[in-house]
Structure formats: C-alpha cells, structure tokens
Design a protein around this nucleic acid. Sequence first.
DNA 1: TTTCTTCTGATAGACGCCTGTCAAGAATTG
DNA 2: CAATTCTTGACAGGCGTCTATCAGAAGAAA
Lengths: 341, 341
Amino acid sequence: MARTTIEDVAQKAGLSVATVDRVLNGRAAVRPQTVERVERAIRLLNFQPDRLAARLARGRDYHFCFVLPVGNNSFMIEFGEEVRATAKRMVHERVIIDLHLTDVFDAPTLAATLDSIGDIYDGVAVVALDHPRVKEAINGLVDRGVTVVTIVSDVPSSKRSHYAGIDNSSAGRTAATLMGRYLGARKGKVGLIAGSLSLRDHIERRFGFEQVMLHEFPHLMILPVMESRDDWQRVETVTTEMLAAHPDLVGIYNVGAGARGVVAALEKSGRQDTIVYIAHELTDTTRRALVDGTIDVIINQNAGHEIRSAVRVLMAKADKGPLIEAMEKIRIDIFVRDNLP
Amino acid sequence: MARTTIEDVAQKAGLSVATVDRVLNGRAAVRPQTVERVERAIRLLNFQPDRLAARLARGRDYHFCFVLPVGNNSFMIEFGEEVRATAKRMVHERVIIDLHLTDVFDAPTLAATLDSIGDIYDGVAVVALDHPRVKEAINGLVDRGVTVVTIVSDVPSSKRSHYAGIDNSSAGRTAATLMGRYLGARKGKVGLIAGSLSLRDHIERRFGFEQVMLHEFPHLMILPVMESRDDWQRVETVTTEMLAAHPDLVGIYNVGAGARGVVAALEKSGRQDTIVYIAHELTDTTRRALVDGTIDVIINQNAGHEIRSAVRVLMAKADKGPLIEAMEKIRIDIFVRDNLP
DNA sequence: TTTCTTCTGATAGACGCCTGTCAAGAATTG
DNA sequence: CAATTCTTGACAGGCGTCTATCAGAAGAAA
C-alpha cells in the first residue's frame, strides 16, 4: 500500500495536480466550489502532504532570530549557548538562526530592536518584557507578516502566536508547596527575592507563591519582596541584610536569577542548613549549591526544550503545518539533589 | 551560498558522485585509499547528506515493533495509547509501528515473543525483564540484524543498543530525599511496596531509596518490602495489613504500579493526611490522588518522551545517522499538586 | 453573441539523494 | 601477455512536492 500523494487526491477529486497544489498552497485564485472538492478528497483519503518532499522541493531556507537579554546571569548565558548549539544543528535542515542580544529590561530599547530586525526574518523568538511599547513592537512585527513567539517571559495580550515557556504562576505555587512541606511544623519568616517587579514571569511567580503560602501555610510569614535586578551582587547584599534583620528566617525563595548571591550570603552566615532555600534555573552554580545542600530545591525550565519548541512552532507557522499542542507544552522541572540530569 | 551536495564532494575528491555514494552507503567494494579520499573531502567541506532527500529517495518504510506488558495497570495502558498515538502520527513519516502485548513478567513467554517477531522488523523496542533467557533473546535479535532498544526497564548486559528510560536508582533516591524532607523531624516507620523483586527497575528504585534513607534519615525505619505484582487489589490488601500492623507508619513508597491500591487503603483508614505517600507514574488515578492530597509526590517518567526517543534511536540506527545523546536522556519528573501538566 | 476575465489542465524542470545498469579503466592473476 | 577480476564513471529514472509557463476551457460582462 503506497502512500497517498497529491496525484491520488487529484484523481479522487477529478481535478489536476496543479489545481490541488494551488489549493494546498493557496497560490492562485481557485473557485470556492473547487476548493471544496479538493478538500473533500483530502479528507476522504486522509491525505497529508509529505513534508520532507515539500521542504526539499521548496528548497528555501528558514530565517529565524532569537532576541535574548544581554547581561551576566548564567541562565541567560547558557540559554544563548543552547540557541547557538541548536542553530548549528539546524543548519543542515535549512534553518538559519541568528542570535540577537539586547537590553530586555529596557522597554524602548527592546522595542527598537524588534522594530529594526523585522524584514529579514520569517520568525522571531523573543524574551519579552510585558510593556505597552514592547507589545506594540511585537504587533508591528506580526502585522508585517513575521511570526513571533515569546520565550521564557510572555506578553499574553500581544498578537504573538505562541508562548514557549513555563506557567510561572504554577512555578511559584510549586515553590510554595515545597517550601511549606519541607518546613513542616516549623514556624518563622520566609523571604522573597525578585529580579524586577515589572517582569511578568517574576510577578506571576510571586503571585503563585504568596497565594499558596497564605492559603496553605498561614503559620509562615512572608517578608516584603526585595528587588535585585537579577544581579547576583545585589542579591547577596539584600540577602545578607535579610539574614541579619530576621534571626527567625526559615526559608528563602529566589524568584529570579542571581542565585549565587543567596548562596554566598547563606554560606557566610553559616545558616544554610537551617534555612530552606528554593531557587530557579539549573546552572553550574545552582547545581553545585544543590549538591552541597545550600539549595534545597531548584525549579527549572528546560532551555533546550523551549528553544526546540520555539523553532518547531516557527517552522510550523512558516509553512502552515500542523502543531501538536501537547508536545509544545513546557513542563516545570523540579530538581532535588538526586534527580539531577 | 548553496548547500554542499554530494556533487561538491565528488568534485573536491576528484571522483564521481557514484563513488561518493558508494562510500556513503557502503554499497559496493571501494578501494580503501579511495574511501579515504572521499572522507577527506567530506571533512573538508563539512558535508552532511541531506537526510530529507535521502529518506525521500530511499522511499522505504521503517518497520518497528513495541513490546509491552499485557495487564491492567494504568501506566502501561496509557503507555500503549501513547505508542498508538505516536504510530499514527509517524505513518506520514514512513514509520510503521506495531504494538505487541505479552506477559513481560514471564521470562520464557517474553523470550519466545522476541524470538518469533524478529525478521519482519527493522527495530524492536521492548519493556524488558532482566533475565538470562530474555537477554539471550535480545542478543539473538541483535545478531539477526534487528536493532533493539529497551524502554522503561533495562537489560544492561545485553547487546541492546540503547535504553530509553529513567535511571531508576536515582528515582529511588529522589523518592527517599523527598520522603525524608517532607517528614522532617517526625519519627516512625516507612513502608515499601514493589511490584516484583525481579524487575530490574523495581530493584534499582528500592536500592536507591534504601541507600538514601539509611544514610540521610536514619531516624526513620524501613519495613520489609511487600511484593504486589503490580496488581492494585493485591496492593490494597498489602497496604491495609501494613497500616493495621504499624500505627506509627509515617510514610509509604510504592515502587511499582497499582498506586490506586494504596490510595484506597489509605482513604479507608483515614490516615492519608498523616502519612506521606510517594508513588510512581502520573496516571488519571495518581493525578486525582495527588490533587486530593492522598499522594504527596509523584515520580514520573514521561511516556511520550520515552517513546519518541526510542523511535528516534531506532530510526537513527536504521540509517546510520548520528544521535545527539544529550537529547535522548530521559529525565525523572517530580510532580506535586502545583506543577501538574 | 462576442469579448474579456477567471479558472483549470498539462507538463517540464527543479530539489538532493538512492538504485541499478553498463561500460571502460585499473589492478591482479596465471 | 592475455584473461580475469576489481574499481570506478556516467547516466537514467525515481521519490513527492513546488514553481512556472502556456494553452485551453469555463464563466462573466458587454
């Protein structure tokens, strides 16, 4: 039993392959009723064009661009590495991926970047700040026919066609549940450190965390959030102050990057064994601290998965292929010392 | 800049495309020194054959078979569903996947199955029992030129070319760490239930669990392992007895399937809130119990990932393509109520 | 009805590689 | 040295789809 091809479809529909192809690729004007005939034949035969052959024939390259934050935080650096690695692998699949670094924390800069890069690319993946200027820039790209997917941090109200990242409010809830369970009956204060209170992912994590803490573990008191701009030195300062001010601190949840700052402060204070510390993102630093016991749990999003997912989505949109939604859902990884990859 | 093709390679090497192709596919006798010339040209040009074109040209189908256990445990049932779903999706990629159910717990039966299915398939993925007879059957397949990958449970000493599954001793360690941390300072007994003590995955999980428990949480006492054959009714009986015999039971780790048996027993006893229960595999049952709070943590292996990974490996072996090892590593998922997918 | 527009059909030529065949050249044997 | 055997070259044809072109056919407008 051979594959069904467009030829079979054409025959079934009593039309020519040329017409079937026109319908398939929306190339030229075709009468509605003819379109219908073709579509019926396709349905009847359960036909799906062979994407291998299609891509071979098209012979065109896919040009994508990843826009990431500049800066010295390990997660983003490793994220960039991963993008480069993926890019290298995909060259042989006719996919060309450029990497563009910019100041994501600054809305006008990010927006300007997005405005300027548009027309060379078929698709753009961006770590986005949820800000009106940025949203506008994203919508501009979309209007000019560029597919946009957000990664890591979303702008849900924009016209982006997909978000490849974790559900951050669930991530915050997860952190809270583990914090509460690890602390058990112990009482005391829990500190919260965030990179920025205008990054959507940080806001959502905090929201989820506080929601569960207040609801499920009311005996624990949450301290006011400290802002760190994801800079580990500032994180260290902030943590040190927190430790000094609260002798009854029993837990720390670091919503953003700069995990090493907390590690340093904790280890200097000698209280790493009594304080439950939950951090985000698996990097060399956090990994080591987890093994040492300074970090108790790492909540992680798999950079490789997100990138590959983003690329799959961009490619699918580029040639109007189908998407398996379930496969593109990014999971929230929990790492303890023993299930490190 | 166009892609480099075999034509470029041929030119660079001063040979014909036919010869380059012979080298590439080891088809006919080629003098060693000629082979060397071709390989040098390939290296120089960093050439990689276009796999799309190759598969299109070959036009051959890949025939694979998945051998799974019969039985009524949800994990395996869902695993089977997932295989079917993958099969359906892959038909359009020239991959035909058959599903073969057999009694995996019974070594001779499994071995006989493996012996009999060989020659129709290019590759076989099997949930294997680590038993000499089975090992022999796997080796037999390999010797007859069939690629074999093990899934879920491994037979490391066999000639199988890959294992698509989690590291089970790490999984056991993970369970122990979470058990210990959740229990905190509480003292008492911890029960262990396994499907079979001759399934390698169960043995390894138990080993990892006990290792960490003895080492890190010596104040908790591990009860002797109960065997359940992964049948939830037997699990329930066993658990009920355990609950009755040990009023100071504080934790249960169910190494195998049949999680619903524990759930039922716990809920009948009314002690689900005081006992930390850690189970394996996310299914409808365990999911509900996790949300309800009867299960505290689920350790999971992602069936979809394992299956896709197995298929990728089988395909790669079938046409001698390269494998990205890092991508094929299956992670140990930890689920609490809040990070359920 | 005639004259334009729209649609549709037929077909050729890619895309990059595989398979097979046939013949010519090179290396080996006796 | 001739007679074999091994290696290589040169093509032709195909995989399933896309792109482009040109000629008809069908519909709409006059």
